[in-house]
């Protein structure tokens, strides 16, 4: 491989946990997360010659990934339904990556698991644009400005989408709040 490809591969390896986490949170299941990463990283590699040193690689790929995800959803209306079914069947049996390390009583663990399951379902039911902004701001901790750059929309749009998304999530998760 040439130097540019080596450099790209190294950046992917260094940031793989962050990249996968964003892909998973956007799609809600591991198979779609892998497909999303595959497509986004392929596109990222093709335009890697434009990547400037000093740019945040994760943000750069996250931008491609978010728009790829939104395009998928726009093009394929079946996608949301397929993902919904796959999410709960294929990922439920797997041990989550970041379960609390401290020994918690089984009841607390059970409540947490029930909340996570409900939260994942509620996220799956959100319109894609709302899900994207919730993932970026609420789950990834980005500022409105950072999210607006990734989503390529005004800060005001981020703010109103986030608010509407939160109201929808609050309705669905009311018993845990």
């Amino acid at each position: 491989m040439n130097g540019k490809a080596d450099e790209f591969e190294q950046l992917v390896r260094l940031n793989r946990e962050n990249l996968y986490r964003i892909a998973y949170r956007l799609t809600g299941n591991r198979d779609d997360a892998e497909d999303l990463l595959m497509e986004a990283l392929t596109e990222a590699w093709e335009s890697f010659r434009h990547f400037q040193k000093g740019t945040d690689f994760v943000r750069w790929v996250a931008t491609i990934m978010t728009h790829t995800f939104l395009d998928w959803r726009r093009k394929n209306s079946h996608y949301e339904l397929v993902s919904l079914d796959e999410t709960n069947e294929s990922d439920e049996n797997e041990e989550p990556m970041d379960l609390p390390e401290d020994a918690e009583d089984p009841e607390t663990v059970a409540v947490k698991r029930a909340f996570w399951k409900a939260a994942n379902k509620a996220l799956d039911e959100l319109p894609s644009e709302f899900r994207a902004v919730v993932v970026l701001v609420d789950m990834e901790g980005l500022s409105y400005e950072e999210a607006s750059k990734i989503l390529k929309c005004p800060v005001g749009t981020v703010r109103s989408r986030l608010h509407r998304a939160r109201l929808l999530l609050r309705e669905k998760l009311k018993e845990w709040l």
Partner: peptide, 23 residues
């Protein structure tokens, strides 16, 4: 609460598949 929602590990061999594809 949303920040606590966990992310399960990727499918076995996912990064090898992705990097092979990029290569």
């Amino acid at each position: 609460g949303l920040r606590t929602v966990p992310v399960p590990p990727p499918r076995h061999g996912m990064w090898e598949r992705l990097l092979r594809h990029i290569r």
